[in-house]
């Protein structure tokens, strides 16, 4: 199994290089795995609201939504909580 894996890795290395080059040429950011909704096709480009585009109370109804966790950059706060802000006029 390990020998086969190593042979296959060598054989498919060209494909990976090609995909990396494509990502660089066209600025691609995601794997084409779940094409059912825009936020599952490009999870890294989604924002907080994309799963709820159908309505503010609409639950994420696409099956691949249950396979994925929210993107890493969305799970950190936008602004520090102790930020000093200007007073509302």
């Amino acid at each position: 199994m390990l020998v086969h894996a190593s042979h296959r890795r060598a054989r498919l290395a060209g494909d990976t290089r090609e995909m990396t080059a494509l990502a660089g040429r066209f600025g691609l950011t995601d794997l084409c795995l779940f094409t059912e909704a825009n936020y599952t096709r490009h999870p890294t480009q989604a924002d907080f609201h994309t799963p709820f585009l159908d309505g503010p109370l609409a639950l994420d109804h696409f099956p691949s939504g249950s396979l994925m966790t929210a993107p890493a950059h969305l799970r950190k706060p936008h602004e520090p909580m102790d930020r000093t802000s200007e007073k509302h006029p």
Binding site: T29, D30, L31, P43, T44, Q45, D47, S66, L67, M68, T69, A70, P71, A72, H73, H78
Partner: peptide, 23 residues
């Protein structure tokens, strides 16, 4: 908003993490 390449990589690490979703 600024999405960094590290964010892209971390997203895919999290998507297929053993703690994520159906896995």
């Amino acid at each position: 908003r600024q999405v960094l390449r590290d964010d892209l990589l971390r997203t895919y690490q999290a998507v297929f993490d053993w703690r994520g979703g159906l896995l």
